[in-house]
Computed example of a mutant assay.
Amino acid sequence: MTGNDHRTEKRLSIQSAVLPFLGSREEDYQPFQYIIQDFSQNGVRIAIPAWVQSRERLYQDDQVNLHLPYKFKGQSRNQGQIAWEKWEDDLDSQICGIALNKSFPETYPVFIALDTREVVIDLARFSTPEKLLLLVLKDCVLLKRGMLIYLNHLTAYFTRLTEFKREEYTLFRLNVINDIKLGLEKNLEYLNKTYLAAMAMGSDHEEILGRLDIDELRKSIESELYIDLFSSVLSLESANRYLRALKTLEKKSYNNYNTMVMLYLQNL
């Protein structure tokens, strides 16, 4: 590694990645926490321990998104299919083998290099580590704010197009949509406070990372909206397209969360 590499790249062994990342099942967008156990150039083995708060049972052939770039020979993949799964009593975990099969351009220069088996944080495009961290936090705020704006538009859209009687839709809005909106507002407030607090700390990225509550960040980023509930009640394909667009914003938020976890791990 050259001297320039030392300045622009930070690396840590995958064995140091002991905190859970966020993944999601493609069929229903359901998020789950997982720990990386091992990987090769074609796949990843993960564990879903019984102790994680966002636990989801996965099955063979499920399509999942790990929301984390796995890079090999310049190509990044983060999506794949469950090739096999089993329960291991000694780990109190479900173990899954995932065949990675979809590529995408990563949002941030933070990825897992499959050839060197390391987490790589490339700072070549950032003057300081905190610039990258602040950008990720700001993006989390913007995505959550965008979801809240989107939901407000959808509420009016549903009012015009739903086949419900007016009083039925009023109940649905009060009991379901308003709860989702309150959740979004609460999580947006937390993310915005976290971002502003990080901004106030200035150029000390270690202090910013040291004060981050990773578990609270995960709770604020995870989904407030369950698409199956809307799909079963509002059987409108046009509405479902909007809901899926909201879920796309959530996926970007999960990517951001996993980036912050890797930055956090690098600081330990």
Rank of each mutant, 00 (worst) to 15 (best):
F72A: 04
F72R: 05
K73L: 10
K73V: 05
Q75D: 10
Q75A: 10
R77G: 08
R77P: 03
R77A: 13
R77D: 04
N78R: 12
Q79A: 12
Q79D: 04
G80A: 11
G80M: 12
Q81R: 13
Q81P: 00
Q81W: 10
Q81A: 07
Q81Y: 10
W84P: 01
E85L: 08
W87V: 13
W87D: 07
E88P: 02
E88K: 09
D90F: 14
L91N: 02
D92K: 11
D92S: 11
S93A: 15
S93K: 05
I95G: 07
C96K: 04
C96M: 10
G97F: 09
G97E: 13
G97L: 12
G97S: 13
I98M: 05
A99F: 11
L100K: 02
L100R: 01
L100D: 01
L100E: 03
N101H: 09
N101A: 08
K102M: 13
K102P: 07
F104P: 03
P105C: 00
E106L: 07
E106D: 05
E106S: 06
T107P: 01
T107L: 08
Y108G: 01
P109T: 05
P109I: 04
P109G: 08
V110Q: 01
V110W: 00
I112P: 04
A113V: 00
A113S: 15
L114M: 10
L114A: 05
T116V: 11
R117L: 08
R117M: 05
E118R: 06
E118M: 10
V119L: 13
V119C: 09
V120H: 04
V120Q: 03
D122A: 00
D122Q: 01
L123M: 12
A124V: 12
A124D: 11
R125S: 11
R125V: 06
R125W: 04
R125P: 00
F126E: 03
F126C: 08
F126S: 08
S127H: 11
S127Q: 13
S127M: 10
S127R: 14
